[in-house]
Simulated assay, not measured.
Amino acid sequence: MEASTSTELVFPPLWKRIGAYVIDLYFIFMLAYVLIIILPEPLADRFRLAIFALAVLYEPICNATLGYTFGSFLFRFRVRDSADISKKLPFHRALLRFVVKALLGWISFLTIHSDPMRRAIHDRAAGSVVITK
């Protein structure tokens, strides 16, 4: 990406990114809870692993297919490939982004103010950038 292109883009502030993250955590928790509640107990027991997998893979699947999660949709930003912002992240890089973010937690966001494109550590690891729609 050229330096002149990055000045035309708007990158969301840290508080919006954390807000979207909190909304996504709540959304995932509520989705898993509702699925477990509405399924009959024997069926819920059989599908607990699948529900857990859905909760874990929610963010990478959404970012790879849609380019956003529910939280980032509400805050009007998208996750894109930093080399070509017209492209979404491929699933394997969206998964890497999620794993690094999950392992580092809030520490991953420490680099956001020192990066010209406001990329967190997990964005740098996956080659992604978060832009305002």
Score class of each variant (00 low, 15 high):
Ala3Trp: 07
Ala3Met: 13
Ser6Asp: 10
Val10Asn: 11
Phe11Ala: 01
Pro12Cys: 06
Pro13Tyr: 03
Trp15Gly: 07
Arg17Gln: 07
Gly19Tyr: 02
Gly19Pro: 02
Ala20Ser: 12
Tyr26Val: 15
Tyr26Leu: 15
Phe27Asp: 00
Ile28Lys: 03
Phe29Leu: 13
Leu31Asn: 04
Ala32Phe: 07
Tyr33Glu: 12
Val34Ala: 13
Leu35Trp: 08
Ile36Gly: 13
Ile37Gln: 14
Ile37Val: 15
Ile38Leu: 13
Leu39Gln: 09
Pro40Cys: 05
Glu41Ala: 13
Ala44Gln: 03
Phe47Cys: 05
Arg48Gly: 10
Arg48Lys: 14
Ala50Asp: 13
Ala50Tyr: 14
Ile51Gln: 01
Phe52Met: 11
Ala53Ser: 13
Leu54Gly: 11
Ala55Met: 05
Leu57Glu: 03
Tyr58Met: 06
Glu59Lys: 12
Glu59Thr: 10
Pro60Val: 04
Pro60Asp: 03
Pro60Glu: 02
Ile61Met: 08
Cys62Met: 14
Cys62Lys: 01
Ala64Met: 02
Gly67Arg: 00
Thr69Pro: 03
Thr69Leu: 04
Gly71Phe: 01
Ser72Pro: 03
Leu74Met: 12
Phe75Ile: 03
Phe75Tyr: 10
Arg78Gln: 14
Val79Ser: 03
Ala83Val: 08
Lys87Tyr: 05
Leu89Phe: 01
Leu89Glu: 00
Phe91Val: 04
His92Cys: 09
His92Arg: 14
Ala94Asn: 04
Leu96Ala: 11
Arg97Met: 07
Arg97Gln: 08
Val99His: 06
Val100Glu: 07
Ala102Tyr: 14
Gly105Lys: 05
Gly105Asp: 06
Trp106Asn: 13
Trp106Pro: 15
